[in-house]
């Protein structure tokens, strides 16, 4: 157990929280749960799609989307793929250790605005993590939304995240979950191909569908193309962007994307807002 000194509300100052659990999801992806360090400490509420800055003491800080259920208070859940120095340090931390946390920051998925509409979730790889709070919210308020469709692509069957949860969700009424992998292997009997190939399995009602998309940028470009071809409007397509970030509050300049800072104006944007800045190479 770690004690902590509470910091004043200075946006750049991390607050220490306790790492409660580390669960292995796949060979390189782990789900971490942060809990309060003391009775006095209250972990903040978050909106689905928002992210925190997680800080491994003396190693570094990075933005990680919250992947837990927004209705569950008192804990913060993150799903992290170990790719670099800090993510490796995060997933190899032991329960009980202190992790610095700032946030939550950024914009949220348009769940209020999608009330009564079909929700189409398109995720690639670790991109499912920031979308899981939105899925959980829709499932918890199942009657408030139309159909829920989740199209999810991963590199290989071993890389599929939340597999048990995904198959359980398929039994919820009006809910359709379809997976695909880039490389199947011999034992895989599901779909093979990039996530856009899944669109032939679903019939969308473009006027009443809100799409929420997260994954590698190249995947999102193709998904947007597919959604537009199926008649969705620019304003009904929501993308979660990823950028290198150092401050998460619009000072450090790293996440500039055209006239926006992804940390403050995003990470979730409508395609209508982004399209001028996505059609040519980076700004």
């Amino acid at each position: 157990m770690s004690a902590l000194t509470l910091a004043p509300p200075d946006v750049m100052i991390p607050v220490a929280a306790r790492l409660a659990t580390v669960d292995k999801e796949t060979h390189d992806t782990f789900t971490l749960t942060l809990a309060a360090n003391s009775r006095e400490q209250e972990l903040p509420a978050f909106a689905p799609g928002q992210f925190s800055m997680l800080y491994v003491f003396a190693t570094g800080e990075l933005p990680i989307s919250i992947s837990g259920d927004p209705a569950e208070r008192g804990k913060l859940v993150y799903t992290v793929r170990s790719v670099g120095k800090v993510t490796h340090a995060l997933v190899t931390s032991r329960p009980g250790e202190s992790i610095g946390v700032r946030g939550p920051f950024g914009t949220a998925w348009p769940l209020k605005e999608s009330y009564g509409r079909d929700v189409l979730i398109v995720a690639g790889g670790i991109g499912l993590a920031p979308l899981r709070p939105a899925i959980l919210h829709v499932l918890r308020h199942r009657g408030d939304y139309g159909r829920l469709i989740v199209l999810y692509g991963a590199r290989s069957p071993q890389d599929l995240l939340f597999r048990k949860q995904l198959s359980a969700w398929n039994y919820v009424p009006d809910t359709l979950i379809i997976n695909t992998v880039d490389y199947g292997g011999l034992s895989w009997r599901g779909n093979v191909g990039v996530v856009t190939t899944l669109f032939r399995h679903v019939r969308l009602q473009p006027a009443r569908t809100t799409a929420m998309v997260c994954g590698p940028e190249i995947m999102m470009r193709y998904v947007v193309r597919e959604l537009l071809a199926r008649g969705l409007s620019d304003e009904d397509i929501h993308l979660s962007m990823e950028r290198n970030m150092k401050c998460a509050v619009g000072f450090c300049g790293h996440c500039q994307l055209g006239p926006y800072f992804v940390c403050k104006d995003g990470p979730i944007f409508t395609y209508g807002k982004l399209k001028r800045w996505m059609d040519r190479y980076e700004l």
Binding site: L62, V83, G84, K85, V86, T87, P216, E217, E242, R243, N244, G253, H254, C255, Q256, L257, G258, Y281, E282, L283
Partner: peptide, 25 residues
């Protein structure tokens, strides 16, 4: 490395892109 992400994705890998960004700002 200003915009380099741990995954290897770098939205502004070329010098021209970085200069464009600087002057756009």
């Amino acid at each position: 490395a200003f915009t380099l992400e741990a995954s290897g994705h770098n939205p502004r890998a070329q010098r021209g892109e970085r200069m464009k960004r600087r002057f756009f700002h």
